[in-house]
Design a protein around this nucleic acid. Structure first.
Lengths: 207, 207
DNA sequence: GTCTATACCCAGATAGAC
DNA sequence: GTCTATCTGGGTATAGAC
């Protein structure tokens, strides 16, 4: 690993503990085994390191979240199976490699003060998945797999729970248990999915 | 307003913008119209001011959230009415006075690094309301108002959405719209409540 | 590209006159 | 209880030798 990568890596490790704001150039230099001044040969300043962290996170996220071929999947699966598959895909997208988890933690902490992170949250973490699931639900209705209802609302009900898990895992429980998301989110979201599926099945049974 | 109160007030105003960490004693002194050194006649240090903020918030919160007499209420109301009442009570508990909203914002930002805030979140914001709603659902089942099911799960499904609104309102949307919670949470949570009530009604119809 | 040395600033905090 | 003055430490960042 070259120096530039090392600096970035150590900056993330430190920022996951106490937030990027609380990490100094000195800290990063010490952890990277070089002097403060050497950092400026690789990054223009502290802000540039944060930008690099966000860029790394976003490209990592995109790479881990290939477009799902929902049409093919919908033809082959039942409703329950599809939810499980969708959730596995979601969790795979979050990843569970330790260092990647730290990136999520940094992003969560930066949310309140960084415009780029806010934009990422609003479009990539919230709107895009909501639109995806809304599309899925519409197709399910077309195929008669679920009864007709407001697909937009259904998507909101379904995906909101995953968003709450994100906030709780990385802002509330992270320090006492950095694996909270990988360990708990899967089960909790699966339970939630069953609740929603239950609702759809009941509707079906009723009609 | 005496000096000690002024210091606390201005500290909150500043911390709501950029987080308490980013506010300096100098900033607070300037906003309060006194010198830095004078602050130490009222507070032991910066940490003491943060503690005072948390204490103010918690006592304000407790004051705004009187115990609801759910038994009496349940006897008089239908299911829909009770949900509306419960939600109004929740929103009243959050309050909408500007300065109080700023306290919520500060709390949300501090969540990731302050143990006291984490504890408040876990017990007062999450566990207590969950237990309250679980109790309500159990009583509703006893009275035959809703079909029997897992009351704990139902409470989680119901209240999780309100928690997500808290995170989104104060971490994501606050800067562009400080009134997001008062304006949006009410409607959104009401819609969510209708979704849950819908589910219960369908269960009822089915059985 | 890394080092030493240093500039410059602002942070939290204290001493002591009034 | 407020002020002026000051301390000490740590922060980001730059200059220039090697």
């Amino acid at each position: 690993m070259d120096t530039k990568e090392t600096i970035l890596h150590e900056a993330i490790e430190l920022a996951a503990d106490r937030g990027f704001e609380s990490v100094s150039i000195r800290d990063i230099a010490r952890a990277s085994g070089i002097r403060e001044s050497s950092i400026y040969n690789h990054y223009a300043g502290k802000e540039a390191i944060l930008e690099a962290i966000l860029t790394k996170f976003i490209s990592y996220f995109d790479e881990m979240n290939p477009e799902l071929d929902e049409d093919a999947a919908l033809d082959e699966m039942g409703l329950d199976e599809f939810f499980s598959a969708g959730m596995s895909s979601l969790l795979a997208g979050v990843g569970d490699e330790q260092h990647y988890m730290k990136l999520w933690r940094v992003i969560a902490i930066e949310l309140h003060r960084n415009e780029r992170v806010k934009e990422f949250y609003k479009t990539t973490l919230r709107e895009a998945p909501m639109a995806f699931w809304e599309g899925i639900f519409l197709k399910m209705m077309d195929k008669g797999m679920i009864p007709r209802c407001d697909a937009h609302e259904l998507a909101e009900e379904f995906f909101s729970y995953a968003l709450l898990m994100f906030f709780e895992a990385f802002l509330v429980y992270y320090e006492e248990d950095p694996t909270f998301f990988s360990r708990m989110a899967g089960d909790r979201i699966a339970r939630h999915a069953r609740f929603i599926v239950g609702k759809l099945h009941e509707k079906e049974a009723k009609e």
